[in-house]
Design a protein around this nucleic acid. Structure first.
Lengths: 157, 157
DNA sequence: TTGATTAAGTTCGATATCGAACTATATAAT
DNA sequence: ATTATATAGTTCGATATCGAACTTAATCAA
């Protein structure tokens, strides 16, 4: 029979552990978003960069609704984000030839330059972080985080 | 001399790895916040719960500014959050006997009940999550996340 | 076809976040 | 003591997020 300490440990309420997990994640998100936005030109948010980056990394020509789903934001939010990008000339909205209700989002030359500058601006911050948390440490936790993200995403009905 | 593959690996640009880290964290935050708020009474946000929880877990009687610093939000945001909590009778604002400019935030009985109900409502969601990600897995990554949080917090000038 | 339903995107209204400016009080300097 | 400076909190204005309702076009049914 296990001793009392062990009994206590296995029966201990795990709730605070999960609270801590999501709390740490929430704080890191808040801090990194602030750092991120410090390194973007004035008036640009992470949401702007994320969309532009996705247009390069995945592909452009997607519809606003596809982008809204990719980022899991309401389509009204995506309308707003895209209008900001369009106003700054980083994207072009064209009619969707396959659907008269729809549009396509295309990256402009300036959009591409914006992304490259943004990434260049961020690399030093990453480098500093990487000194303290080298790639192998990050590689150790990213797969679990990705699993959690997938699980939570799927659980979202 | 290391072979080419290895050379490639050690010289490989780690930037995408760090992008992914913060991206996964950002998505998890977004999804868990949504889940969290689904389980709170209508009109309450994570920020409300977080403050009430802190008043129990740390202590009440702290000033709005102390709370703003604890959550790393501008004091104007804390004013807004506290006014919502006060309007619902979950906290009481009293003058600070040590400083005529300042106030103290005290939890009410209803605030305590609110917190207990909120936690009770969240436990099932945690339990489901815990089936897929048992405590030992979470224990494996929380310390690193906590270290990252501390580092980023300290780096914030 | 014609009419009904569904879907893409926008507009509108409500609220959260946050910086700048303001008010009132405390602290420091002389 | 008087004056200058700094601090706690609020108010105000700008913008982001997001749901509801709306417009227009596509699809489905008869």
């Amino acid at each position: 029979m296990a001793d009392r300490k062990e009994d206590h440990l296995i029966e201990d309420d795990p709730t605070p552990l999960y609270f801590q997990l999501f709390n740490e994640i929430g704080i890191i998100e808040q801090l990194t978003r602030a750092i991120f936005e410090e390194h973007l030109p004035d008036g640009f948010l992470v949401s702007h960069f994320a969309v532009v980056n996705s247009l390069v990394r995945v592909r452009d020509g997607r519809t606003p609704l596809e982008l809204a789903r990719a980022f899991q934001v309401p389509k009204t939010t995506m309308t707003h984000t895209l209008s900001g990008l369009e106003k700054h000339g980083l994207i072009e909205m064209r009619p969707n030839p396959r659907d008269g209700r729809s549009k396509q989002v295309w990256l402009t030359k300036n959009g591409d330059i914006f992304r490259e500058n943004a990434i260049r601006g961020l690399v030093p911050a990453f480098a500093e972080f990487a000194e303290k948390f080298p790639p192998d440490v990050v590689t150790g936790i990213v797969p679990i985080l990705a699993e959690m993200r997938e699980y939570l995403d799927a659980a979202r009905d």
